[in-house]
Design a protein around this nucleic acid. Structure first.
Length: 579
RNA sequence: CGGAGAGUAGCUCAGUUUGGUAGAGCGCACGGCUGGGGGCCGUGAGGUCGCAGGUUCAAGUCCUGUCUCUCCGACCA
């Protein structure tokens, strides 16, 4: 490809609406352009990257035994109502009625459609196991698209769905995908970590997340320094804290007036205490029931852990009316005393149980209570009382006695064991050897194609621009002709370009009639891994320069050997990303 | 959904306080000097100042409404 004919609108200015490094560079390097919030056009360089990433994904997923199909993005709402995810996904799902008034959605994912297909086509254990996948656009009406393509409303996802007859077989299917993911991300030149993850709305029993640690990440990875444990924040299990020893006997609870003082900070200020000595009482609505959850004032309740404790039921904070009914007080004054009798369960974080005593809301508007002692003033055991790990991991927490560390990351892939959630609801059943009807055991496996691109840039860049791994770079080699107007220089560049083309090297020839400086700036910005510089200065000695984008040194080689040398370097760089 | 900010040339932004003929740099077109790290000089094209109302002799500027974008937050303790 000739640069003079290629649409690569690089820009000098840093785009005003870009925050993330990858987003800025994608705009600056002419990779993409924003069309509307969370939707992007990919220009030639960007599309080339995406195609290369897709090719790697396809190759490895095929190798792992899955079969590619294509299901519609336009899906009947009916399917989503059957699985209950019309509600669970809520506003995040794009919905549209067709001319007949029938509800449709733009698929944010495709469990329903794949399971529907399986329900119709799979009847016997002889057809199992089977793994089907597609690479297609997905649509999510994110409450807040951001970081360029990292959180967008339309994106490309590879989603695979496995169907197995028994748990051992599911484990194998899961493992095959897990291994394929490792190969894919390694081949894409990404440094990633694998963390234990919650299955979230997906339901199910086991999940791992593949995450690229970097500043622009939206996920938080929690890990121990020795690498023995890594999980995402939703999942990260923390050790219980040691039981606090009281300095003396805890006096009986004492009610104090705290007019209009409803927040933790305000109460601390007012009563001269600290958040860690307070107990927060949160009221949640879980389907038709109400539960209360207790965490320490300086801790954050982890909704995923709450859901897990509730056996997978989705919990929302209760509305004001419910809170007032349950606590008898306005919002901001809820407390644990006597509340166990008014809710269907009382869920208490370890750290609260370990407190000697604390300050809580008094269940009376404008009042708090001091000297509330867990186990004395409210129960730590009982039919509807659970003490468990309920809070988000924070600074200072440990896991198996080891200090937990935190890092931001971009989630690029996730694998789930789904079990029978979808197969039961959509009737994906088969007859086993005994002729008994059973639901398929499912797994689902997603990879964010655009996020691979963005994370590669997050990891590979310097002040001058992008530094691509060769496997997903838009071109492998850039031949920069410094003096396009000088015939012999242009000829030499053209010759090397042709030789590389003939050897199936993915090469771009910068044949623009521009000053060298501009070409070098553009070259660094768009980040092609190998640059061959053909200019009259070195050509006078019969030489050209070869420089790797990731290194600062350049080497001179004689013109006749340049192509072969470059071919060798391409092979070498590729070799390093082999799995 | 709540809070904050922003919409003026293709891009990055001045101009709005105090109403009075629409600006700069970059980019683009043409000419010249240049020619190995976004060079210089000259000429030129390019705008219903997000949109709709209103106030006024006069609105980019003041008022009302509306749309869009960005950032922060959404966990009621």
């Amino acid at each position: 490809m000739r640069y003079s004919r290629l649409l690569v609108p690089t820009v000098k200015e840093i785009p005003a609406d870009a925050e993330a490094t990858s987003h800025k560079l994608m705009i600056r390097a002419g990779i993409c352009r924003r069309v509307a919030s969370g939707t992007y056009t990919y220009l030639p360089l960007g599309q080339r990257c995406l195609l290369k990433i897709i090719a790697i994904v396809r190759e490895e997923i095929n190798r792992a035994g899955a079969q590619e199909i294509l299901v519609p993005s336009l899906q009947p709402l009916e399917l989503w109502e059957k699985t209950g995810r019309s509600t669970d996904y809520g506003e995040t799902m794009f919905r549209l009625d067709d001319r007949h008034g029938k509800g449709n959605v733009l698929g944010p994912t495709a469990e329903e459609v794949f399971t529907y297909l399986a329900a119709g086509e799979i009847n016997s254990y002889k057809q199992l196991p089977i793994n089907l996948y597609q690479i297609s656009p997905k649509f999510r009406d994110e409450f807040r698209p951001r970081f360029g393509v990292i959180r967008s409303r339309e994106f490309i996802m590879k989603d695979a769905y496995s169907f197995d007859a028994d748990p051992e077989s599911l484990e194998k299917s899961y493992r095959a995908m897990y291994d394929a993911y490792c190969r894919i991300f390694t081949r894409c030149g990404l440094e990633y970590v694998i963390v234990e993850a919650e299955s979230g709305e997906m339901g199910g029993s086991g999940s791992h997340q593949f995450t690229v640690p970097c500043e622009s990440g939206e996920d938080t990875i929690v890990y121990t320094e020795d690498g023995s444990y890594a999980a995402n924040l939703e999942r990260a299990a923390v050790d219980p804290l040691p039981k606090e020893q009281a300095a003396g006997e805890i006096p009986t609870p004492q009610e104090v007036e705290t007019p209009n003082v409803g927040t933790i900070e305000a109460v601390c200020e007012f009563l001269k205490t600290e958040p860690k000595d307070m107990i927060k009482t949160l009221v949640y609505a879980v389907e038709d029931e109400v539960v209360a959850a207790l965490v320490r004032g300086d801790h954050e309740l982890n909704p995923e852990k709450l859901t897990q404790t509730l056996g997978g039921a989705h919990a929302d904070l209760a509305d004001e009316a419910t809170i007032e009914r349950v606590t008898g007080a306005k919002v901001g004054f809820a407390g644990p005393i006597g509340v166990a009798d008014k809710v269907s369960s009382l869920i208490i974080d370890h750290a609260v149980a370990a407190m000697a005593a604390g300050v809580t809301g008094a269940n009376k508007t404008d009042c708090h209570t001091r000297n509330v002692m867990p186990g004395r003033d409210f129960p730590l055991e009982g039919d509807n009382v659970v003490v468990t790990d309920l809070r988000c991991a924070g600074e200072g927490d440990t896991h198996d006695g080891k200090k937990l560390l935190f890092k931001k990351g971009i989630e690029i892939g996730q694998v789930f064991k789904l079990g029978t959630k979808y197969s039961v609801k959509l009737g994906a059943k088969f007859l086993d050897e005994q002729g008994a009807e059973k639901p398929c055991l499912m797994g689902c496996y997603g990879i964010g194609i655009n996020r691979i691109l963005a994370s590669a840039i997050e990891l590979g860049n310097d002040d001058n621009g992008i530094i691509w791994p060769i496997s997903i770079a838009p071109f492998e080699v850039l031949v920069t002709c410094v003096n396009q107007n000088e015939e012999d220089v242009a000829k030499a560049a053209e010759s090397i370009y042709q030789q590389l083309l003939d050897s199936a090297v993915d090469v771009l020839l910068d044949d623009r009639a521009l000053r060298g400086g501009i070409k070098f700036k553009d070259a660094d910005l768009i980040g092609i891994p190998i640059r061959v510089t053909v200019g009259k200065r070195s050509l006078a000695e019969g030489k050209v320069e070869i420089k790797l984008r990731c290194e600062s040194e350049r080497q001179e080689v004689v013109v006749e050997e340049a192509a072969d040398k470059v071919i060798a370097i391409v092979a070498d760089l590729k070799e390093k990303l082999k799995v």
